[in-house]
């Protein structure tokens, strides 16, 4: 069985979108509720498709981000968002 490779540009786009989203999250001056909602969405999304884009290592931090958002713990949210961002940027630097 011959595997189907994931296009590099798709993976890069994926990372850049995450990068933009996490930046938006961290720089946001929106109300805490909005911030938590964004964090939960990012966490859930990365948890659900990082593996598909072959970034399985992002999953754990994404899960933690989602859980922190559900707990409404903003400090934890920002902590995991930074960690996720570091991973995203590391992958980007490798790919680009």
């Amino acid at each position: 069985m011959t595997g189907i490779a994931i296009p590099l540009e798709s993976r890069v786009r994926y990372l850049k979108r995450r990068q933009a989203e996490i930046n938006d999250l961290m720089d946001s001056e929106a109300a805490p509720e909005v911030l938590l909602e964004k964090a939960q969405k990012i966490g859930h999304q990365v948890k659900g498709n990082a593996f598909t884009f072959d970034f399985a290592d992002l999953t754990d931090n994404a899960k933690s981000l989602e859980a922190a958002a559900l707990k409404k713990d903003i400090i934890e949210v920002l902590t995991f968002a930074r960690a996720l961002m570091a991973q995203v940027e590391a992958h980007l630097s490798t790919l680009v």
Binding site: T2, G3, I4, P7, Y14, Q45, G48, N49, F53
Partner: peptide, 27 residues
């Protein structure tokens, strides 16, 4: 199995709101 021709001619409706998933699944 030959994956490249596995679904040849098949019409698939992908209902997905995530842009990433749309892109990768359709790929």
């Amino acid at each position: 199995m030959d994956l490249k021709n596995l679904l040849r001619g098949t019409r698939i409706l992908l209902v997905e709101d995530s842009e990433d998933n749309q892109e990768i699944f359709s790929h």
